Amino acid sequence: MGLSHEKHFQVSAGLLATADARGHFHDLNPAWERILGWSLDELRGKPFIEFVHPDDREATLAATAELLQGHTHARFDNRYRCKDGSYRWLGWAASVDMDEAPEERLIYATAMDVTSDRERADELTRVTHLATVYEKLFQVSVGLLVTLDANGYFRHANPAWRQTLGWSPEEMTAKPFIEFVHPDDREATLAEATALFQGRTTIRFDNRYACKDGSYKWLAWTAHMDASEEPSRRLVYGTAHDVTSYKEVHGELERTLARLRDSMQAMSTPLIPITDRIVVMPLVGQMDSDRIGQVMSVALDGVQSTQVQIVILDVTGLKEIDTRVASALVDTAKALQLLGARTILTGIRPAVAQTLVGLGLDLAGILTKSTLQSAITFALQSGQIPANVRPL
């Protein structure tokens, strides 16, 4: 080797090598030690195939055999093990001088570290594969998928929109998305979209979207905005599904429950007529603020709309009578008295009597009887309303 070639051999950034037909390195330049970490003597000390990744050995041996038969490889890649146990991808170009005697023939090879290129290629392949997978999922998904830009337009819409609302993806992206939203839901929807573009990362909400036939369907949304993207490139990624049937069933259930509550409330404070001038109002269960107000309302409306003169409030069935309930009963009796009706309170237990006395309530105009039967008997035997009660 001439002096000039020797200097190039020593300073070359590429890996230079010669190897014999038995598979051992002969000449190696210093770049090997810098890139793989092995000393040159360590690399010469055993067959080069032992440094090759197990998965690449068969192809490497095949390429070596072809070289020794006179074929030239313009590019061949394999992985070589570094001294730290990792692997580097090497890109090879090699040839054999077939004019030399067979026993003296050497492989003349040069290689470059192409690890970063292979990693980028592998990553590109992986990303491309994922993009293909996601594109297929986007096309076949039964869920409604969209991306939304800051100008209020859908950038992408999958085919499921046509099946659900009748609009094609092209129609969904042709005008501002808010035009598809029910007028009553637009303000809330715009507020949610604005919150996303202002930094809120994920939202969940329901709204109504117009179908192509003029009807509306309820959609349940989950939407996300990746705040790490450049502001000018940020998109909202949204998925929705049709919950119209659920909303309709839920709405009907709510209406049914409301009717049932109204019926139960009416049943919980009934006015039971004994005669045209005597009614009984049995109070049962637990009294809360709503029921207290209802008791007074039912009693007053009943007296005002009829000729009732005696109202028997039977509290036998109440689970508990606290100071609040006791005060409300007395207030009801006084209000009835103003309408010209007398109140008989029945079913008072000793503890309740103590509560009434302890409150110092004015019980004038209120009769008490120990049982409902005695109260009804008293009312029936009363030929008239006691003198101290004057009908209005």
Rank of each mutant, 00 (worst) to 15 (best):
A341C: 10
V133T: 03
G285K: 04
S370L: 13
V357L: 02
D55E: 15
T128P: 04
E230W: 14
G166W: 07
S382D: 06
V146S: 13
G37L: 08
S268C: 04
L300D: 09
S268F: 07
R162Q: 15
T377E: 08
T115M: 14
D213P: 09
R390N: 11
A333S: 15
L253N: 04
A59S: 15
A19P: 02
F25T: 01
L68M: 13
V243Y: 10
H73P: 02
W89M: 14
A326S: 00
L363K: 01
L43G: 11
R162G: 08
K212C: 09
D213N: 11
H5P: 00
L145I: 03
L36E: 05
S374A: 03
L130T: 01
F76E: 01
L190T: 02
L361I: 07
H53L: 14
H224W: 13
L148D: 00
K136Q: 13
E100P: 01
V284E: 03
S116N: 10
K136F: 10
L43Y: 11
E103P: 00
Q139Y: 08
T110K: 10
E252H: 13
Q294R: 13
E66C: 06
W161E: 01
R390C: 06
L219K: 02
N207G: 05
E170Y: 01
I348A: 01
L271V: 13
L15S: 08
E252K: 15
S4K: 15
H26C: 12
L253D: 07
T128N: 13
T306Q: 15
N151W: 02
D149I: 08
P231W: 09
V284K: 03
A31I: 05
T377D: 11
K7E: 04
G2Q: 10
P47K: 11
S141W: 07
